[in-house]
Amino acid sequence: MEEMIERIKLKFNAKDINRQKATLVFFSVEKKDLEACVLYMKEFEGYSNLTMISATDWIETGTFGLTYHLHNYKNRTDVGIKTYIDRKNPSMVSINTLWAGARVFERELKEMFGIDFPGCPRVDDPFALEGWDNLPPMRKDFDTVKYSEETYFPRPGRSTKDNVTQMEEKLYAVEAEVKKGIAKTVRKNK
């Protein structure tokens, strides 16, 4: 693994090298080098399995961090290749020709973070949120509380701190009447 890290440093000027575990290393490369780096890791270093593609929103620095997790079946190690892309106009080169499974990850990232992957088939199809017209929800500036308050009207009884009896009498009077009736009948039959 040490030799591989040295080669990556020389070839792609890898930075922020973090040996998290004996079998796991994270490093970051420039955005323009990422596709070449991933291809090199796949073809020459044996990292032939794409585990997943993750995105992290670094709103303070105005970037998205993308992490490509690769796995090597032979020496049983993992790498996380990171790159940072601009948050204002996020776009990244697609790697769907290297791994067929990458299409699903890229499609999800497009929906959840708004990161575009030009050339990836069906990348614009909705993934989990059909008919979504708001800010991509996994971004840090998407306010979930505000969204739910605007979208879903408050249910009656939620805002008050009434106890159960009062709730029954005020809000669900008919149901309470039925419940009392049943209890009365049960008592009578005893």
Binding site: N18, Q20, K21, L24, F26, T51, T67, H69, D78, G80
Partner: peptide, 11 residues
Amino acid sequence: WKIPAGETYVK
């Protein structure tokens, strides 16, 4: 509980 800055992948 504040956990120091870092990242990991566990499986």
